[in-house]
Design a protein around this nucleic acid. Sequence first.
DNA 1: CGCCAGGATTGAA
DNA 2: TTCAATCATGGC
Length: 289
Amino acid sequence: MGATIFLPVNDYDLGATLDSGQAFRWRRVAGGEVWEGILGRRVVRLEAVPGGIRAHTVTPLEDPAALRLFLQTEVALAAILKTFPDDAPMRAAVAACPGLRLLRQDPWECLASFILSSTKQIVQIRQIVALLGERYGEPLAGFTAGERHYSFPGPERLAELSEVDLRGCKMGFRAPNLLNAAREIAAGRMDLEAICGMDYAAARERLMTLRGVGGKIADCVLLFAYGFDTAFPVDVWIERALQELYFPRRRASDQRLRRFAATHFGQHAGYAQQYLFHYMRTKRAGRPT
DNA sequence: CGCCAGGATTGAA
DNA sequence: TTCAATCATGGC
């Protein structure tokens, strides 16, 4: 019964990676470093063990390669870290969490989640996404009886709902934005597959044609779902990080910070961003989740 | 530029 | 207990 996959990898901080505001449907299972979440239509348990990550599923994955893709275990992290600027803030950020990774998520789930993320804290995004799954996803087999897990509802499913249905999931003014995105995709007017073949600027512009998707959210999706490593989402945490760490003496405009980020952090700027983000959120006590 | 959207959480009264 | 500030993005 069930299936186990072992993914060999070093320098992988599973907990930090799954809990760093990239993905919203993974939770720590009581006791130890075990995480549970959904990949496609399977409930998956992940455990950090010496030399790698062990994955358990109730029924075998449709595609075992999907797990490697999602976790990005084959990415040579050390080589990426070497491309970071050799300055004090970056060194501190990497030292704070040397095994932090970027995931490679499903584009639709990622896009929908980040449309819902606007002006929301991570705990609240989790709640909304969970509610959306409970109401409109499909039930999935879990490890123990009584547990309830749901797939993430696809664009076709959401497209047939009403704004009122979605508002019922406590997403407020984001409801029409999510509904519109689902309908654009379901109708074939927005092709999430086609984004893969575009260059960064074109892909960003394309995503930003969706209502509720500005530069920050587009960058999150490009980085977390499409692997555009140069995407550099600037939220208040990153803005604060850049301001405090790189421009402590004078106030830098948003424009200036953005231009600085684009040139300073190199070809894997998105990774650097994730390290700074995590560093800023964990170094002070009493951080918001 | 400045306001508004909705709800969970935190801290104050 | 209630109440008000906070969070932090995009559209107009």
